[in-house]
């Protein structure tokens, strides 16, 4: 008898949690993402899971160190135009920016144009699109490499006149 009840209980739990977990983003519990400014450093996967349903309205699962009001590490979070911010912006926005690059246009490209002090977003988009394989040579390329490849294209194409990246280009 007890066994039947146990089986029944297990069946209900499995079916409910199975249905609930058939959601986007559901996956194994993940540690903090890889170092760097990539989006993985913010998103924790679906941690801690379904029982969270009882705890309704939080989203905050980030490290306080990187994003503290008073202690934030500025290499990831400084939006002032320049080399470092263009790079970290590209790292974090990699998933969206790689699409915009292939499409030759988009919000991340317009923003990158501002961060690099470049002249024209359309020209930046066209140049990156042409160099797509240089920016993303393969699917495995790291966020960091992606960021420096993007900046590399901008600095090597003089016609883009990316003023905020100029000093690095000379080096």
């Amino acid at each position: 008898m007890k066994k039947t009840i146990a089986i029944a209980f297990a069946a209900v739990l499995v079916s409910i949690s199975g249905a609930a977990l058939a959601q986007p983003g559901a996956g194994p519990v993940r540690p903090y993402g890889p170092a760097g400014c990539g989006l993985g450093s913010v998103i924790l996967g679906n941690n801690p899971g379904f029982v969270q349903v009882f705890a309704a309205t939080t989203n905050g699962t980030f490290g306080t160190q990187t994003f503290g009001i008073t202690s934030g590490t500025s290499n990831c979070i400084n939006p002032t135009p320049g080399m470092a911010s263009a790079r970290s912006f590209s790292e974090t926005n990699r998933a969206a920016m790689s699409k915009d690059i292939a499409r030759g246009r988009g919000e991340t490209i317009a923003t990158l144009t501002t961060l690099g002090g470049c002249k024209d977003p359309a020209a930046v988009g066209a140049s990156l699109q042409k160099n797509f394989r240089r920016v993303v040579p393969n699917a495995e390329v790291s966020d960091r490499a992606f960021g420096s490849n993007v900046v590399g294209v901008l600095t090597s194409d003089a016609s883009l006149s990316c003023k905020k990246l100029a000093s690095v280009a000379k080096r």
């Binding site: 913010v42 980030f62 306080t64 994003f67 503290g68 009001i69 990831c76 979070i77």
Partner: peptide, 21 residues
Amino acid sequence: RGHFKRMPYYYKVREYNDYES
């Protein structure tokens, strides 16, 4: 403990708009 945090808005856009749709 609840803390205030700051980050460029693009982190939020990528997390909510894209990753979680």
